[in-house]
């Protein structure tokens, strides 16, 4: 009878396999610094306060990795609707993000997965 009640183990999310919050926090802070240091994209963030930007990046990265947050596509589109983000800017952000993932010592296969997931959001973020 005991086996009847065993709950099947859930597949672990990328968020868990890469090391959870301690790794996420490194990625978020590193990425945040890179974004603000970049001449190409810092202009997008001059009027946004730190708290909001970090909050946004934390939630976005967590949701990209299957952590405890979920941004719907509609929310992402809404958040970027007034900012004229170009493909160049998006490419720059994508590179910085990928750098931040490498610097957090993630496995190349995991990085490829995450960068792909990031890329899939391009149409929601870049203005057409």
């Amino acid at each position: 009878m005991a086996s009847v009640f065993k709950v099947q183990a859930m597949p672990r999310s990328l968020y868990e396999t890469i090391g959870g919050f301690s790794v996420i926090s490194k990625i978020v802070l590193n990425f945040y610094g890179k974004v603000l240091e970049s001449d190409k994209i810092a202009v997008y963030f001059t009027d946004i306060d730190m708290k909001r930007l970090i909050d946004h990046q934390t939630k976005f990265i967590c949701s990209l990795l299957g952590g405890p947050a979920s941004f719907s596509d509609e929310q992402l589109r809404h958040a970027h609707r007034t900012v004229q983000i170009t493909d160049d800017a998006f490419n720059e952000i994508s590179e910085l993000f990928s750098d931040a993932l490498h610097e957090a010592s993630l496995k190349p296969t995991d990085i490829a997965l995450i960068v792909n997931a990031f890329e899939s959001k391009r149409p929601l973020i870049v203005s057409r």
């Binding site: 919050f21 926090s25 802070l29 730190m50 708290k51 970090i54 934390t58 939630k59 405890p68």
Partner: peptide, 16 residues
């Protein structure tokens, strides 16, 4: 501050 905000954001997510 960045770390503070990050923690705040994250603990908000966890609480939710």
């Amino acid at each position: 501050k960045e770390q503070e905000y990050l923690l705040e954001s994250f603990s908000g997510l966890i609480e939710r």
